[in-house]
Amino acid sequence: MFKTLNVSQREIIEQLKISCQVPSLLEAIATRKIILNTAKEAGIKVENEELQQAADALRASNRLIKAEDTWNWLQKHHLDLEDFEQIAEINLLSVKLAAHLFAEKVEQYFYENQLNYLAAVTYEVVLEDEDLAWELFYAVTEGEITFQDVTRQHIQNPELRRTGGYRGIKNRHEFKPDIAAAVFVANSPELLKPIVIAQKVHLIWVEEIIQPKLDQQLRIQIISELFADWLKQQISQLEIIPHFESDSYSQPVQELLRIAS
Rank of each mutant, 00 (worst) to 15 (best):
F227P: 15
K200D: 12
K176E: 14
A181M: 14
E225A: 01
P177W: 00
I235A: 09
S248E: 11
K193D: 14
H202Q: 07
I145K: 11
Q237P: 08
R162T: 10
L160T: 08
Q221T: 09
R167H: 12
F227V: 01
N157W: 07
S246V: 14
Q217C: 07
R161H: 02
S236E: 13
H173T: 14
A198W: 12
P194K: 03
S188N: 07
N171Y: 15
W230D: 00
Q216S: 12
P242Y: 08
E144M: 12
H173A: 11
G165R: 02
E142V: 02
I240S: 08
E245G: 13
Q199R: 15
P212H: 07
A180H: 11
A198V: 10
K193Y: 11
Q153N: 07
S246T: 15
L238I: 03
L238M: 13
F184M: 08
W205Q: 02
A180T: 03
L231W: 09
Q156F: 01
R162M: 10
V185I: 13
D247H: 15
F244M: 04
I195S: 08
I179G: 03
E207V: 01
F147Q: 04
I222N: 11
P194I: 04
L192C: 05
W230F: 13
K176M: 12
A186Q: 09
Q237I: 10
F227C: 03
I235D: 08
Q221N: 09
W205D: 00
N187Y: 09
K232E: 11
D149K: 14
Q237L: 13
A180C: 11
S188D: 03
Q216I: 02
K176C: 05
L203P: 15
H154L: 00
R152T: 08
E245I: 12
E144P: 03
N157F: 01
H202C: 12
K232A: 10
I240W: 04
R172C: 05
